[in-house]
Simulated assay, not measured.
Amino acid sequence: MTPLSFEEHTARDARLVILRGLAEQVDGRMNETLLTALLRTFGHNRSRDWVRTQLLKLKELGAVTITEAGTVYIASITRAGVDHVERSSVIEGIARPSPEA
């Protein structure tokens, strides 16, 4: 198994932060502006384009769906995304959640 680059490790962690943020919402949805602010809270100070790239990767992995509202992406967590956050399955390409204390 080859070690991950720092950039890939960072991206996988950010994808987990996004999924956890979506899972906490009543309807499982957030727009990219709110997700960018959430990521900054966890030390991921990245551009909106970078956040969009992560959302598109999460979509590719089946963890979210994306709806466009004008020029803004709205991400919705899928069952597979919820299962990953709840540790009942694993999606490669997303950091694994830590066990709850």
Rank of each mutant, 00 (worst) to 15 (best):
P97N: 09
L22I: 04
V17N: 08
E8C: 06
A69M: 10
L19S: 01
D27V: 14
W50M: 03
G21C: 03
T71I: 08
H9C: 06
E92M: 10
A80L: 14
E60L: 12
S88G: 09
T71L: 13
L58I: 04
E32C: 05
T36Q: 15
A101C: 03
E86Y: 07
R15H: 10
G62C: 08
H9M: 09
M1A: 14
S98Y: 14
L39P: 00
V64N: 00
R40H: 10
E86M: 12
T71M: 11
L55A: 02
E7R: 12
L61A: 10
I66Y: 07
I91S: 02
S5F: 02
T78A: 04
E86R: 12
H44D: 01
L56W: 02
R46P: 00
I74L: 11
L38Q: 12
R87A: 12
I74V: 15
L55T: 00
R46M: 05
L19A: 02
V17T: 14
V26M: 10
T33G: 03
Q25F: 03
F42C: 05
S5C: 05
T65A: 09
V90H: 13
L56M: 10
S5M: 06
T36K: 11
L39F: 02
V51E: 02
S88M: 11
R87K: 11
T2Q: 15
S5V: 04
V26R: 13
A14M: 07
R79T: 09
A11G: 05
T67G: 05
K59T: 06
R48I: 07
R87V: 06
S76F: 07
G28S: 09
L61S: 06
L34F: 07
A14F: 03
L19N: 01
K57A: 11
G70Q: 08
T36F: 00
E32D: 15
H9K: 14
R40T: 12
T10S: 11
T78R: 04
A80R: 08
K59M: 10
A11R: 05
G81Y: 03
G21N: 04
L35S: 03
E92I: 09
W50Q: 06
M1T: 15
P97A: 13
A23Y: 13
Q25N: 12
E60D: 13
Q54Y: 05
I66W: 05
A95P: 00
I77Q: 01
